Amino acid sequence: MSAEEGRLTSDDRREQVLAAATVVFGDKGYAGGTTDAIARQAGISQAYVVRMFGSKENLFLEVSRRATGRLRVAFRDIIAGFTGEESNLERQHALGTAYGELVADRGILLSLLHLFGLGQDPVFGPEARECFLDVYRIVREEAGFTAEEATEFFARGMLNTILLALRMPDLRDDARAFELMSSSMGPQCETILANFEAQASARA
């Protein structure tokens, strides 16, 4: 075990590995991401990563659960602040802004996309479906949207996800790109783009 591994608590070490794995799986996908690359990203040994999680499959599951757990928390934090005076459109905008802040972390954004793209996988598919349906339940029951409003919210959210995954904010000076992002993201567009650009600068 390295000196760095020894200084951190077990929870800190676990979060360190999960954060590194989020970056690697986000960049490379499940098939392309390796425990060796994750260990290098975290600055620890590959053997330590394997001891902690057992297998790459388990690690990807934990990365997925970390990302989807943060999504649930982000939405519930916003919902807890609702007073009952907001229109459902205002609620959609507030939740959309929270989602934009979360997926400004490109590792989380791409990890979620990779998870949803593995719907046919016997292990990852059930995890992806349960996540999607649980977030739908939160929006329907806890945020109080109708089925139609929830469907519109999810449709717009998936378009925003694709736009961010495409790095469309890099083309914000292109009138076509900015019009599409503004139309899809609505009043929270500038906030989402600012968060995205801040994260990109931090990674540079």
Rank of each mutant, 00 (worst) to 15 (best):
A177V: 10
Y99T: 07
T161A: 13
V17L: 13
E149I: 10
G26Y: 01
F145D: 02
Y136D: 04
A175C: 01
L133A: 08
D174G: 03
Y136C: 06
A39E: 02
G26S: 10
M52I: 07
A3K: 13
V73Q: 15
A147T: 12
A19K: 12
V49A: 07
A47D: 08
A31P: 00
L113K: 14
L180V: 15
T68F: 05
A200H: 02
M158T: 13
N195R: 13
L89P: 00
G6E: 12
S64T: 12
I162R: 15
R70K: 15
F154E: 04
L59E: 02
E5D: 10
R72F: 09
V17G: 08
G125Q: 09
E62V: 03
V135I: 15
M185C: 09
Q16V: 00
A202K: 12
A98F: 05
L89T: 14
V50T: 13
G32P: 01
A202I: 04
R167N: 13
A147Q: 07
F25I: 14
L159M: 13
V50A: 10
V50Q: 10
R203G: 02
G6W: 04
E141W: 01
Q92F: 00
S182Y: 01
C189E: 06
E148T: 14
S111A: 15
Y136G: 03
R13G: 05
L113E: 11
S111E: 03
A204M: 04
C131R: 03
R72N: 12
L71R: 12
H114A: 15
G117S: 12
L180S: 10
R65W: 02
A175Y: 01
A37V: 02
R40N: 10
A20Q: 06
